[in-house]
């Protein structure tokens, strides 16, 4: 596989480390009344739908960017690659 790094261009997948669902960016608020349930959902529950999947990859053998990769889990087609930092910033 190749991942089209937004800053560095296409790089071989072997340079990256995979983490998992990109929803891990959305860490719940610990002060919420339902924090225990929210953290449980955040930590353990995934929908695992086949098809398009947003996921986190770390460019460990590269510039250390965390990326959000939109990959089709059925075809491995990669539709979009974004800096996780930009997504996290837009959220807050």
């Amino acid at each position: 596989m190749k991942i089209n790094h937004p800053l560095l261009g296409p790089r071989d997948a072997s340079e990256f480390v995979y983490l998992g669902d990109a929803n891990l960016i959305n860490r719940p608020n610990a002060k919420s009344e339902t924090a225990a349930q929210e953290f449980y959902d955040y930590q353990y529950l995934r929908t695992n739908n086949p098809g398009e999947h947003k996921e986190l990859w770390f460019h460990e053998q590269g510039d250390r960017s965390w990326l959000v990769v939109t990959r089709n889990t059925l075809t491995h087609e990669i539709k979009n690659v974004e800096l996780a930092r930009n997504i996290a910033r837009a959220r807050s």
Partner: peptide, 9 residues
């Protein structure tokens, strides 16, 4: 790096 970039950018 995950904490820095993804949680508290």
């Amino acid at each position: 790096e995950f904490c820095r970039q993804c949680l508290w950018p």
